[in-house]
Design a protein around this nucleic acid. Structure first.
Lengths: 337, 337
DNA sequence: CAAGCTTTCTACAACGTTGTAGTCAACGTT
DNA sequence: AACGTTGACTACAACGTTGTAGAAAGCTTG
């Protein structure tokens, strides 16, 4: 019981194209004709076939957002902002989960859904520049995050180094000297980890504090469990930091958990800072001090970059836009003041 | 630089249809012809145009999942499971956010993206049965949750009443008598709330505890902030529960926060239970006792129902499947045992 | 070795839409 | 009165794919 332009046209006694013109808001249609067509549309509950329209127009009105995992709060929040920003262009957002696996990311980048999406916003973890070089056959792509810096695609980033430096400086400003860093990664996937670690060491150096290897804890993934485990390892090894900088908020929430289990008071004995400003952190106990990237802006810039590419400037050189961030200082460093 | 079947056909020296046959794995193609075609495909990096294929086949391979908000952890986790289950059918999942607004939900239900999606998995908050009656023009839909019970669509639910009864009974079993219920709603949107409240009152009645109106706190939304506010209101009104049953986990996390601020120890002075088993709860302090619906199963059942509809049984009567749940008993009721 | 089947391939039409080119009437200008 | 312009509409082709029908060649069978 699904109707086509032809059915509407017959019922309204006009040509198929005239119905199409009405549907698309073409100006030169007589009011009474328009009314007749609109009535026929309503009576038949006609809805355009998007596949046919897409085929004809070469556009689908769908963009994809590829993220490692949807149930990592940072990506869920980001996804929401992207959907909102895309709505401004009447785009639908198709959300892809890559699991952070390089193979899966490569598949997405190569555009497995080519012709179904007009563009791609991609937040990769493991992808390398060479993976990108091949595929993608003309579908515009915007990368989020700091990986693949000399890649061929547009970029939206925040200044990870500066942000990590500032929040570490905040901890130092509270009088802390033995500041642990949680979330270090040596793998090529760990671009964010490297940048945040760099900011951390810069802040220590600026304050004349010696870099202490034993205070830097690796974490394979950045989930709560990893943060909890990393701190547990530190503490059971007898390392006693007076502050902890976690490279993201879920790590920090895990860290809070372990510190609590060990009876260490936050922030009196150990101050804790995170990165991402996810909603959980605002309701943690204590509330979590963190770096708050402007996710809404990141999403908007990414969508605008994509819109630019789709609007003709396909061959413009790759651009890199920097989104702002701010420090959200809360109880986990300031106390209940 | 995007190629079509025609380009491949010319290069391989065969007809367009033969290329199509190779692409679709048709059996009767000579091995050497197949090889020639495959080489041409590889050389041109050919990828089928999905719009054209969809137009021809009347199927898109895309299903939609509509949820109120992606950054509510329960829905993010559910989304992940749906994406995984759908992958088994080679379906892509398009995720829609309705914000829980009735108007937006109606638009989704009416199939604004008709012809773009083969089916819809829908977790509505505000939608009514009559909203559904009209639209939907043949696109199969599966509803998640307990709203719209006599609607015309397939359903996957959990037994909210029994689950709420059991977890309340657990609190009673701990010797608690003044058990608050957080998250009550009088609006028509509050179907889950009503069912969970029913379970709560049943458990009280079974234990011979009088229902106390002052212990039942409403919450417009079910976010952390609402849970925090509801408990704050109770406490400042001098109400002193010895347990709190929150109708979902985010409410419970907010409640934990407020109890902490007021210096009330959990679970010694106040036991806390939630509903949903989101990951945050497993790392909260204390870890959160909750009802754990089998989200993986819910997602799988929903996808299977949809697959059934798409596989021909379009006119079968609407079915309702019940997914299991279990109680996850943790520190917020049992203590650090 | 004729008749019938199978394998391998092709030509054509169709899916539902929109861009292009065009028709025809009404209008305004010279 | 002839001309160009504009408005309102239509016929047709094309987007890239696949189902149908069928042709040509090879194989089996009595």
């Amino acid at each position: 019981m699904r109707h086509r332009l032809k059915d509407v046209a017959e019922r309204a006694g006009v040509s198929v194209k005239t119905v199409s013109n009405v549907v698309n808001g073409y100006a030169h249609v007589r009011p009474d004709t328009r009314a007749r067509v609109e009535q026929a549309i309503a009576e038949l509950n006609y809805r355009p076939n998007l596949s046919a329209r897409n085929l004809r127009k070469g556009r689908t009105g769908v963009i994809a957002l590829a993220v490692p995992e949807l149930d990592i709060p940072y990506f869920a929040e980001l996804a929401r902002h992207v959907v909102t920003a895309a709505a401004g262009y009447d785009w639908t957002v198709l959300i892809d989960q890559t699991g952070g696996a390089r193979e899966q990311e490569r598949v997405v980048a190569a555009g497995i859904r080519d012709h179904l999406i007009d563009g791609l916003i991609f937040s990769p973890l493991a992808l390398t520049a060479e993976d990108l070089a091949g595929g993608l056959d003309g579908t515009p792509m915007v990368l989020l995050g700091e990986r693949i810096d000399q890649g061929p695609a547009d970029h939206v980033v925040i200044d990870n180094v500066a942000a990590a430096r500032e929040i570490t400086a905040h901890l130092i400003g509270l009088g802390r000297r033995r500041i642990a860093a949680i979330g270090a990664q040596r793998t090529p996937e760990g671009a964010s980890a490297r940048l945040r670690l760099a900011g951390y060491t810069q802040a220590l150096a600026a304050a004349g504090i010696d870099y202490d290897e034993t205070l830097v804890a690796p974490a394979a993934a950045w989930h709560r469990a990893d943060g909890a485990a990393a701190v547990r390892e530190l503490v059971t090894n007898g390392v006693r930091p007076d502050a902890v900088f976690c490279f993201n908020d879920t790590l920090a929430l895990g860290a809070l958990r372990t510190l609590h289990e060990h009876g260490l008071r936050v922030p009196e004995e150990v101050a804790v800072a995170g990165f991402d400003d996810i909603e959980d952190g605002r309701f943690a106990m204590p509330t979590l001090t963190t770096v708050a990237p402007d996710k809404e802006r990141i999403a908007r810039l990414a969508v605008e970059l994509l819109a630019g590419r789709l609007g003709g400037e396909r061959d413009a050189p790759a651009r890199e836009l920097v989104a702002p961030y701010r420090l959200a200082l809360r109880e986990s460093t300031l106390g209940r003041g």
